[in-house]
Design a protein around this nucleic acid. Structure first.
Lengths: 213, 213
DNA sequence: TAGATTGTTAATCGATTAACAATC
DNA sequence: TAGATTGTTAATCGATTAACAATC
């Protein structure tokens, strides 16, 4: 970023991805524009918050009309980096790993899983959803061949840190971590945690709070 | 909650679940206590933040020593509701649903998946990881029989709202939503989104920001 | 005791919300 | 035009961080 540019706040980024889902769902309808008021109503946010978010990514709307849906969708995608072509590899082809391999990433997320790796030889040598699963030992050679952007970690927690270091030393720029453990990596790599237990904690705590109310 | 009690902030809850993972990992070591300073160092937080978080859940430490690990773990679990016995059902036995069914929830999350349901008859009639998968039509009868606390939604986005409403009208108190869509439910139900694309957005955006820096 | 770590009180920072003039 | 919705500027709210006395 430029000198004093700030990182976009995480809550804004999360909401932007929600706007995106809403807009994609609207695609089959024949409406061309949408106001922040309407978006807010559909997602149960406040209109001013939606306007602020869209302002942040540089969008300009028309009073009384709102925003052009096509333009809005594109702007969000490009802000989130979903128009680029991220080459990802997945490590850990267990149950979760397999589910991730089968996910339809090809529609609009700018990410493509090009290969998977597993420490267990019984899991390698196959192809899942068109993606080859190799033994972990084949990774360095694979990484040397082509550019890789994202590493998806879906191994048991105990193995995650080691995997992260291997990925880091092979030029990966981002790690999407599904193992419930904190990864320490050197600075220029983006790490985002996506393990289930964080959102589970949120749910179970909110349920307690609800009952106390 | 009591009159003016506030909900615990989401970031605190997320960090608490991280502390929990750290402490569980420490179990096999024979250390008995840990200081907020040490926790902070291991997770790359600031010590003051850790202390504030632990203070929020009512823990008292000893100067120069820190907190008793066993006590700390218990306190976090009970604050997060992980010591209770939540009965959950899962709707949508696709790839992600199956991965969730196979996840080892039995160690320390206070949640148990007692049954799964799917709209596709080809997916029902089986047992996954000891959990029976029924056809969706069997749900009302099943729900009438026993107490259910949590509904896990892992169906395609287009079907999610309908499923949520069915769950809501069958006494569920919390929804863990893996479908990339916003669910509208009546007030007393806790809904937490856990779909992949939110964290993916965070990752891909951070990667862009990293490059610009 | 000395020093590390705690809990408390106050200051800062950042995100959300409110108010309102501008505009299509 | 009238009214809905925008963008802007200011106020509020809440979370994080800092400073420091208390304590084991």
């Amino acid at each position: 970023m430029k000198k004093n540019a700030r990182k976009a706040p995480a809550p804004v980024i999360r909401r932007l991805s929600n706007y995106h889902h809403l807009l994609v769902g609207l695609k089959q309808s024949n409406r061309k524009t949408i106001s922040s008021t309407t978006i807010a109503e559909m997602l149960e946010y406040k209109p001013i918050q939606v306007r602020k978010d869209l302002q942040l990514i540089g969008l300009v709307g028309r009073p009384k009309v709102g925003f052009r849906i096509a333009e809005l969708t594109e702007a969000i995608q490009s802000f989130l980096g979903w128009k680029s072509n991220c080459r990802a590899i997945l490590v850990g082809a267990g149950n979760l790993g397999k589910a991730l391999l089968k996910y339809p990433w090809d529609d609009g997320y700018g990410i493509e899983i090009v290969a998977a790796f597993d420490a267990d030889k019984k899991r390698s040598g196959v192809t899942i959803n068109g993606i080859p699963v190799y033994h972990q030992s084949a990774f360095p050679a694979f990484a040397a061949k082509d550019r890789l952007d994202v590493g998806i970690i879906a191994v048991p927690a105990a193995a995650a840190q080691t995997v992260a270091e291997v990925l880091a030393s092979n030029g990966i720029r981002g790690i999407w971590n599904f193992s419930p453990t904190h990864l320490k990596v050197s600075a220029p790599i983006a790490v985002v945690d996506a393990f289930f237990t964080q959102s589970l904690a949120l749910l179970t705590r909110r349920m307690i709070e609800g009952r106390e109310e």
